[in-house]
Design a protein around this nucleic acid. Structure first.
Length: 299
DNA sequence: CGGTTATGTATAG
DNA sequence: TATACCTAACCGC
């Protein structure tokens, strides 16, 4: 999936290319005909993200809520305003970055192409288009319903208004393993399986440590590191958690780091830890694969 | 071409 | 805990 950084990139993309535009909405796949009809012809007034939830807001006071789930993705195309990422969502390879727009970048735009694959929703302005495939959730809701959904989520490290103390108190109140709480969107919103494994490694926290045994300083350090990592993810369009001294020489900005150098432990089972050389371990936690270094993250 | 896999979550039992 | 959801890339045959 798309962890929180991808959803915030989408909010930014929709804000920059579609806000203020009248949108034609359709469902080529046919599974969102009614919902598309309720926003068809409306003006997008804004887009925002909280955790992995994307909210597109329209001038008829309706809100389109999208959750990409495990394999949802948006693709974009259009005139020169649409230059940049043409696809944001489910990555298909480790360390993958978003696919660049291979359009010629000219100002010509003759309308969207024939839909390819199962397009749940297609939004079209006079400048470009957006296609949504494979979301786990896509629905039209009211602003009150949107507020209720956000209220149930924990603080989002990518939201500057988030209160770190809420996360610190919540994670330390329960005996639940820290590795599980990081995946609980009611505890902290936007963290997924990659950021979970990587931030625990970077802060040298044993994944099975009960929350009550996590020090306040360490809990805050997890939060602060996620703020750093996820904001970098928003900038780069991919998850890179390694620092330059732990990568092969020569790679510059995080967007240029080779995929095999992007992570410390995620999907590196059996490979040597970049710090100590111990083979990286893997186990199931919360029905997801968890990766960690048994030496650097000893309990 | 079929089986596997995935950065996720809801629901059933 | 298990399964369903439902999409596309990758891998081995």
């Amino acid at each position: 999936m798309p962890e929180g950084h991808s959803i915030h990139r989408l909010a930014r993309q929709f804000t920059s290319v579609f806000t203020g535009e009248t949108l034609k909405a359709s469902s080529p796949q046919g599974r969102f005909l009614e919902g598309a009809g309720r926003i068809d012809g409306s003006v997008l007034t804004g887009a925002r993200a909280h955790g992995k939830q994307l909210f597109l807001e329209f001038d008829n006071d309706l809100v389109m809520r999208v959750h990409l789930g495990l394999y949802g993705a948006w693709s974009f195309g259009g005139d020169s305003r649409f230059r940049g990422a043409s696809s944001i969502g489910a990555p298909r390879r480790v360390g993958e970055r978003e696919t660049p727009n291979d359009d010629d970048g000219g100002s010509s735009y003759g309308g969207p192409p024939a839909p390819v694959g199962a397009v749940r929703v297609r939004l079209v302005s006079k400048h470009g288009w957006a296609d949504l495939r494979g979301p786990t959730a896509c629905e039209i809701i009211t602003q009150a319903e949107r507020d209720a959904i956000i209220a149930k989520l924990g603080p989002d490290p990518l939201n500057p208004d988030s209160d770190p103390a809420r996360f610190v108190a919540r994670v330390r109140r329960t005996r639940t393993a820290v590795g599980l709480s990081l995946m609980n969107q009611a505890v902290i919103a936007g963290v997924g399986n990659v950021y979970r494994a990587e931030v625990l490694f970077r802060r040298r926290v044993h994944p099975w440590l009960p929350g009550v045994a996590l020090g306040e300083v360490t809990a805050l350090a997890l939060w602060e590191d996620l703020v750093l990592l996820m904001n970098d993810g928003v900038r780069a369009g991919r998850i890179v958690t390694t620092t330059p001294q732990h990568r092969s020489p020569g790679s510059g900005s995080s967007s240029a780091v080779p995929a095999e150098d992007a992570h410390y432990v995620y999907k590196r089972t059996g490979l040597e830890c970049r710090i100590c050389g111990t083979p990286v371990a893997m186990a199931e936690m919360g029905a997801r694969k968890l990766y960690w270094c048994p030496y650097c993250q000893a309990d």
